[in-house]
Design a protein around this nucleic acid. Structure first.
Length: 309
RNA sequence: CGCGGGGUGGAGCAGCCUGGUAGCUCGUUGGGCUCAUAACCCAAAGGUCAGAGGUUCAAAUCCUCUCCCCGCAA
């Protein structure tokens, strides 16, 4: 079971492994994009390519879905970024249990946005944990863990891609060792748990009163989704890449304090943030240098959390 | 039929409302200045104004249609 890009390497790894994939579950097609076009989840695309049985339940407790799932008689259900809570009936369906591939070093960052929150909090290390799912939110007993260094220029996109690859390997490894009986589930230390809730659009609003470093981390964690944004008057900017400049400033947070050839320097609550890449509304992502070529900005202009009307 | 913006030398944009010689910033090339430079100065190259049709003496500009791109929303 899985849905987005993050789940793809896990699925591919399973397909190449000795284990047989008897069926795939992913979220229903939803109207997306500009028009009203239905979009297929990345996982569904692979399921179709491989010609594998596919279920796309609207509700987890749908009797028809449950019946079909039981028909498959899975030994184990592997779950990667599926996006739905599994009811007890499903958790107890496979004899060997439901194995989740989670994008953090549990018990830290339980929830739907572990990769993003790790970046937002400025972590330098994260990882993948496989675990036996229980009814809680990422609270099950851990099976295997692999850690990975976070690079200073990682974004949620780049980090997620690397973690997903490791996740695939770890999943196959986990299944093999479970089958061999050489793996003992290890309960999480719940006192150390932290939460990483799903991000919302509004989490992307940049608060310029925060320190430059925090803003930069937040931008990394929110790129490419849901995107960190700010407003210049009525124009919305999504900030794609920015760097901290160690320089003190007493200017009001959000004020443009300098224009460089390839960067826009903005005052923050503590220090200066250099915007290197942005995506203006109605336009595509571009380096600051290109934006400046066609939009003469002036020092003293004010960036804000909300559109100025 | 979800709402909206856009397609103008290599890049980013202005010009369109109020038709009349194609403009800005950057890049490129050549030259100059300088101890030196990604800095500065001078010069040059480079565009069937997305495409088709229409209106007009005249269309980037007004009208109609087509294609492509993007933001929001989901």
């Amino acid at each position: 079971m899985g849905t987005p890009e993050f789940a793809v390497p896990s699925l591919e790894a399973l397909l190449k492994s000795d284990d047989q994939v008897v069926g795939i579950v992913t979220q229903p097609d939803r109207p997306k994009g500009r028009g009203q076009q239905l979009s297929l989840s990345p996982v569904k695309v692979i399921a179709q390519r491989e010609g594998l049985p596919l279920l796309q339940p609207t509700k987890m407790k749908d009797p028809g879905f449950m019946a079909e799932l039981s028909e498959w008689k899975p030994d184990v259900i592997a779950v990667a970024a599926f996006g739905r809570i599994l009811p007890p009936a499903i958790l107890s369906l496979p004899p060997r249990g439901c194995i989740n591939v989670h994008g953090s070093l549990l018990p830290k960052y339980r929830g739907a946005g572990p990769i993003q929150w790790a970046l937002i909090n400025g972590e330098t290390e994260t990882g993948i944990t496989t675990m036996l799912m229980d009814e809680g939110m990422d609270t099950g007993a851990m099976l295997l863990q692999a850690s990975m260094a976070i690079s200073p220029d990682d974004t949620a996109g780049s980090l997620s891609a690397r973690l997903a690859e490791i996740g695939g390997r770890l999943l196959v490894d986990t299944l093999a060792r479970l089958k061999a009986g050489t793996l003992t589930p290890r309960p999480q230390d719940h006192s150390q748990a932290t939460l990483a809730p799903l991000l919302k659009k509004e989490d992307g609003a940049i608060n310029w009163a925060m320190p430059a470093l925090s803003i930069a981390n937040r931008i990394r964690g929110l790129t490419p989704w849901p995107g960190a944004f700010t407003f210049l008057n009525t124009d919305r900017w999504t900030i794609c890449r920015a760097a901290v400049i160690s320089e003190a400033t007493a200017l009001p947070p959000g004020q443009i304090m300098a224009l460089r050839k390839d960067a826009i320097h903005v005052a923050t609550g503590q220090g200066v943030l250099a915007i290197h890449e942005l995506q203006p509304a109605n336009s595509r992502r571009m380096p600051a240098a290109q934006y400046l070529a066609g939009h003469p900005l002036q020092v003293g202009m004010q960036l804000d959390q909300a559109a100025a009307l």
